[in-house]
């Protein structure tokens, strides 16, 4: 069952990658990338169990955090054109 779930998750990544390739807007690609990040995190968790070494879940946690931070960084850039801009300083 773990193996089947892993394969299904890989297929999910492949489909989301297709969406990232098709676009058409940047936001579609961002959405797809965000989904890939989430699924990669799940894949990592399931894979740890498949390997019989579930103590590597720390890495999945790091993935989750980075995924969010990456998306928010990109979106902040989109809105303000600058990563560190304060509203006060403008």
């Amino acid at each position: 069952m773990l193996a089947a779930a892993t394969l299904a998750l890989l297929a999910t990544i492949a489909l989301a990658l297709l969406r990232a390739a098709l676009g058409p807007t940047v936001f579609d690609r961002l959405q797809a990338a965000n989904s890939i990040g989430t699924v990669a995190m799940l894949l990592l968790a399931v894979f740890g169990f498949l390997r019989g070494r579930p103590d590597f879940l720390d890495l999945a946690l790091v993935y989750g955090l980075l995924n969010v931070i990456g998306v928010i960084a990109i979106l902040k850039f989109f809105r303000q054109g600058d990563l560190g801009a304060d509203e006060e300083s403008r």
């Binding site: 773990l2 089947a4 779930a5 299904a8 959405q31 797809a32 399931v46």
Partner: peptide, 20 residues
């Protein structure tokens, strides 16, 4: 747990199909 895992993976696939 195994059943939940399979169902969850299935829903992920459904979501990806929806993305397309």
């Amino acid at each position: 747990g195994g059943l939940g895992l399979l169902a969850g993976a299935g829903f992920c696939l459904v979501g990806a199909v929806g993305l397309l």
